[in-house]
Computed example of a mutant assay.
Amino acid sequence: MSVSQPVVASPGAVARFLSRWYFVVTIISFGFFAWVPFVHAAVRLGRKPLYVRAVVFAAAAVAMGVLLSLAPTDAKGKVVGAAGNLLTTAALILGIVLIVVGCIQQGRLRREILRQVPGERLDGPDPALAAALAARQRRTEARKLATEDPLIARDLRVGRPDLPRNYDDGGLVDLNSAPAEVIASVCGLDAATAQVIVEVRAAAGGFAAVDDVFTAVPVAAWDRVRDRAVVLPR
């Protein structure tokens, strides 16, 4: 029986969803709380001028409240008289201005915040980076499988891109079984270094861990090897 895997939202998806509250707060409050998103953006972006902008919007909201409070009303709270209508209309216009101007400026700030999220572009996730991150995740899962159930990993041909297979391990190479040319290609090594790895493997009867090959690999290539290599029991 298969067990469904939990769906984890990407950081970009979460950021896009959460940043929409800027518009919700501004519109629902009819501009009274349009200053709040600017405070949030100032914190996220580290830009002090945004605090000034927040103060301007807050002052405008206070002015709108003052206009409404000055409008004369009858016993039932209904605005009366030409002065009341004028003050109410002025507050209404100011509220609309706060909503329109606020949403326009908040939209720009929202895009700036999304740029801070890895893998995000203005038009959504960067395809190349998203694919690279997905491949890294698959490598992590394949390594876990190789550790927990090496027999299944071997049957799935984890780390053997040179053999026919259906399992996607994200681009791993098994240092204990792959040919020298495959090790060189996947790990970005020169042919001579890959051949030394194969010779050391044969002499030692296999590697117990990826780090065992570092005696034959230049230090500059260690991170690439750690990222792409796996060792399955022989």
Score class of each variant (00 low, 15 high):
residue 212 D to I: 07
residue 100 V to E: 00
residue 164 P to E: 12
residue 12 G to Y: 11
residue 40 H to M: 15
residue 197 I to D: 06
residue 207 F to K: 03
residue 168 D to T: 11
residue 147 T to W: 15
residue 197 I to E: 09
residue 58 A to P: 03
residue 18 L to T: 00
residue 133 L to F: 01
residue 231 V to R: 04
residue 41 A to N: 00
residue 173 V to Q: 07
residue 202 A to V: 08
residue 70 L to Y: 14
residue 226 R to Q: 05
residue 145 L to W: 08
residue 5 Q to M: 09
residue 83 A to G: 06
residue 117 V to Q: 10
residue 191 A to P: 11
residue 90 A to G: 01
residue 99 I to M: 00
residue 190 D to V: 11
residue 191 A to I: 11
residue 76 K to P: 05
residue 175 L to R: 03
residue 226 R to E: 02
residue 177 S to W: 14
residue 223 D to L: 06
residue 39 V to A: 08
residue 166 N to V: 11
residue 55 V to H: 01
residue 79 V to G: 01
residue 222 W to G: 00
residue 107 G to M: 12
residue 175 L to M: 05
residue 82 A to F: 01
residue 216 A to N: 07
residue 233 P to Q: 13
residue 192 A to C: 07
residue 112 E to N: 11
residue 158 V to K: 00
residue 43 V to W: 15
residue 117 V to P: 08
residue 22 Y to N: 12
residue 77 G to W: 12
residue 195 Q to I: 08
residue 143 R to V: 07
residue 148 E to S: 14
residue 145 L to P: 09
residue 113 I to P: 01
residue 40 H to E: 14
residue 131 A to R: 08
residue 15 A to I: 04
residue 130 A to L: 12
residue 31 G to Y: 11
residue 126 D to I: 04
residue 170 G to Y: 02
residue 88 T to P: 05
residue 32 F to V: 15
